[in-house]
């Protein structure tokens, strides 16, 4: 049963780093799900939140993430309709209902699951400064705030995915 060893071909433990840089619902999920799936198969995982990705870990925003209905060709609705007030909220609530049917956790629950799984969650120092955020604005699951150089130290040896 060789596949149960989470090792790379060089026989070092595998590690992934996911960088979450976007705060829309559709961009939050892929990063969080992939990091969690890595933990589920025994791969070390770290998630670095930066720029709009900070919304995913900001207490006041994390359960209100929206899908973009303007400038999003995949939505299949004309931009002038997508710009009607309330359209983004409507599309987001529809998407959340579909996710519930699939038993997908909400974004706040997924952050909790990641923490319980042993994934390490970090916030970006520059984004904190730019958006005038303090540690109290962020969920307690955030292990530390890193600057860009510290990020590379923490990410050593990892496969990196930018979302």
């Amino acid at each position: 049963m060789s596949e149960e060893k989470p090792v790379s071909s060089e026989d070092k433990p595998r590690k992934v780093v996911i960088i979450c840089s976007k705060g829309t619902l559709d961009m939050a999920y892929p990063g969080l799900i992939l990091a969690n799936a890595a933990r589920m198969v025994g791969i070390d995982a770290m998630v670095f939140f930066t720029f709009w990705g900070m919304d995913i870990i900001t207490k006041k925003k994390m359960d209100k993430l929206k899908v973009a209905t303007v400038g999003n060709p995949s939505m299949g609705i004309p931009t002038f309709i997508g710009s009607i007030p309330g359209m983004s909220a409507l599309a987001s609530s529809m998407m959340k209902k579909e996710m519930e049917k699939l038993e997908l956790p909400s974004v706040p629950e997924l952050v909790e699951i990641l923490d319980a799984s042993g994934a390490e969650l970090y916030a970006c120092q520059m984004a904190m400064d730019m958006f005038k955020l303090t540690r109290d604005d962020l969920v307690p699951e955030i292990k530390d705030v890193l600057d860009a150089m510290e990020f590379w130290e923490k990410a050593e040896g990892a496969q990196i995915v930018f979302v």
């Binding site: 589920m40 198969v41 699951i113």
Partner: peptide, 26 residues
């Protein structure tokens, strides 16, 4: 799946990682 187990089997997510440290998902 893992979340379904933690929602229904009376074990927490943390428990599952302690029980199966090399990958509770599989």
């Amino acid at each position: 799946g893992l979340r379904r187990i933690t929602k229904n089997a009376g074990v927490s997510m943390r428990d599952m990682y302690q029980l199966f440290p090399k990958g509770p998902g599989k």
